Amino acid sequence: MISGFGALNLDKIYMVDKIPGKDEEGFVIDLEMHPGGSAANTIAGLASFGVETGFIGKVGSDEEGRILLRDFEERGVETSGIVRVEGRSGVAMIFVDRDGNRAILVDPGVNDTIEIDEVNMEIVERSDIIHMTSFICKNGLESFRSQIEVAERANGVSFDPGLPYVERGLEELKPILRNTTILLPNRREIELLFNVDYREACQIAIDMGVEIVAVKLGAEGSYVTDGKNEYLVKPFSAKPVDTTGAGDAFNAGFLYAWHRGKSIEECARTGNYVASRLIERVGARSYQGIDPEMSG
């Protein structure tokens, strides 16, 4: 079983005539709503691939929360680890103009308020690995602190820190990194975190206790190492339509292959493949028809 622990956000995507500057006005052309959240997107992918999955998170008592829960339930994700409380669910307001430029405003809502005694430890104990991603931490540090404790108690941890956590600095992330099995940053994140080239940064992470580091390199593919072996894995050709969730899709492919006992090189190749197929369609959870076994 693979479970996620991260923010649950409803992405409200506004197609606009322009992204207004200060004191400017524009108008909305169309509105789409999609369940989102980095760890949640990865877990949605794994569930689509037939992996037993669960999630640890929090939603409010609003329609947004009901939509987020319903999406997981329809995918077969175990939701007993998702706390329902009074308040606002997380929302990401994404403004996209005709040229594809984006501006994003995030309202974390109740995401930042997960106390450790609200965490379903039965899910933690049953999971082979807990996949963690960042919280915004604007409404408190409870969720971040709970992740630190879960990392210490989990059977395994995969960690995609994202910029919100990278910007907190290495010292604050050390308690999680020391308990991380698989670290899944992109190149910018790992170089900012360790202030060195990504390959050297990978070795520093390995020395800290991380078992596997897979760095997402975008159009260049990915790099993966366990401290003994290293591979630069070429990307698959793709015709991008929407790159939203590409990193989360890589994580889903990588963890799927890891869960099936594949080599780290095969894991990275599967991650590349799943990401390449996802970006050819609209939506961060559009996994229908993607078969990770087709990565070769």
Results as ranks from 00 to 15, higher is better:
residue 32 E to P: 06
residue 8 L to F: 00
residue 150 V to W: 08
residue 71 D to Q: 13
residue 3 S to R: 03
residue 171 E to N: 15
residue 187 R to I: 07
residue 185 P to I: 00
residue 122 E to M: 11
residue 64 E to T: 15
residue 202 C to P: 01
residue 126 R to T: 11
residue 21 G to T: 08
residue 73 E to K: 05
residue 148 I to G: 05
residue 32 E to F: 15
residue 254 F to W: 02
residue 216 K to S: 14
residue 215 V to E: 03
residue 193 L to I: 04
residue 240 P to V: 09
residue 178 R to A: 11
residue 177 L to E: 00
residue 294 M to L: 12
residue 88 R to Q: 15
residue 261 G to I: 05
residue 149 E to A: 10
residue 279 I to R: 10
residue 214 A to M: 10
residue 272 N to D: 03
residue 273 Y to E: 13
residue 161 P to C: 00
residue 195 N to Q: 14
residue 262 K to V: 02
residue 135 F to H: 02
residue 177 L to G: 02
residue 266 E to V: 09
residue 178 R to N: 04
residue 168 R to Q: 15
residue 122 E to T: 12
residue 189 E to V: 03
residue 267 C to M: 07
residue 270 T to Y: 13
residue 78 E to I: 10
residue 164 P to C: 06
residue 199 R to L: 04
residue 91 V to Y: 01
residue 223 Y to T: 06
residue 6 G to K: 09
residue 160 D to W: 03
residue 76 G to N: 03
residue 17 D to P: 10
residue 227 G to M: 12
residue 46 L to Q: 00
residue 223 Y to F: 15
residue 8 L to E: 01
residue 129 I to F: 03
residue 111 N to Y: 05
residue 108 P to C: 04
residue 26 G to P: 05
residue 185 P to Q: 08
residue 233 V to A: 04
residue 184 L to N: 00
residue 26 G to Y: 12
residue 61 S to D: 15
residue 288 Q to G: 11
residue 99 D to H: 11
residue 292 P to Q: 03
residue 33 M to R: 10
residue 149 E to R: 15
residue 49 F to E: 04
residue 263 S to L: 06
residue 45 G to T: 01
residue 153 R to S: 10
residue 232 L to V: 09
residue 46 L to C: 11
residue 134 S to R: 05
residue 57 G to K: 03
residue 165 Y to T: 02
residue 123 I to L: 13
residue 146 S to F: 04
residue 197 D to P: 15
residue 109 G to C: 11
residue 97 D to T: 06
residue 202 C to A: 12
residue 145 R to K: 15
residue 282 V to Q: 11
residue 22 K to C: 09
residue 198 Y to W: 13
residue 169 G to I: 11
residue 277 R to Y: 07
residue 60 G to Q: 00
residue 47 A to C: 06
residue 224 V to H: 02
residue 291 D to K: 14
residue 221 G to Y: 03
residue 214 A to R: 03
residue 78 E to Q: 13
residue 71 D to G: 09
residue 70 R to S: 15
residue 183 L to K: 00
residue 231 Y to K: 11
residue 262 K to I: 00
residue 116 I to S: 06
residue 50 G to K: 04
residue 136 I to R: 14
residue 199 R to M: 02
residue 99 D to L: 12
residue 41 N to C: 12
residue 123 I to Y: 04
residue 223 Y to L: 04
residue 112 D to M: 05
residue 162 G to S: 01
residue 74 E to I: 10
residue 174 K to G: 07
residue 161 P to Y: 00
residue 189 E to R: 05
residue 132 M to T: 09
residue 214 A to V: 15
residue 108 P to E: 08
residue 109 G to F: 06
residue 64 E to Q: 14
residue 286 S to Q: 03
residue 138 K to C: 08
residue 123 I to C: 06
residue 7 A to V: 11
residue 4 G to H: 04
residue 188 R to T: 14
residue 249 A to I: 08
residue 232 L to D: 01
residue 213 V to M: 07
residue 227 G to T: 11
residue 105 L to T: 11
residue 60 G to T: 00
residue 229 N to C: 12
residue 232 L to Q: 13
residue 39 A to R: 14
residue 150 V to R: 06
residue 33 M to T: 12
residue 56 I to R: 05
residue 102 R to D: 13
residue 206 I to E: 00
residue 62 D to I: 05
residue 136 I to L: 14
residue 291 D to S: 12
residue 191 E to A: 10
residue 33 M to Q: 15
residue 204 I to C: 02
residue 182 I to F: 03
residue 136 I to N: 12
residue 160 D to P: 07
residue 289 G to Y: 08
residue 45 G to A: 01
residue 167 E to R: 15
residue 272 N to M: 07
residue 264 I to Q: 03
residue 108 P to A: 09
residue 270 T to P: 08
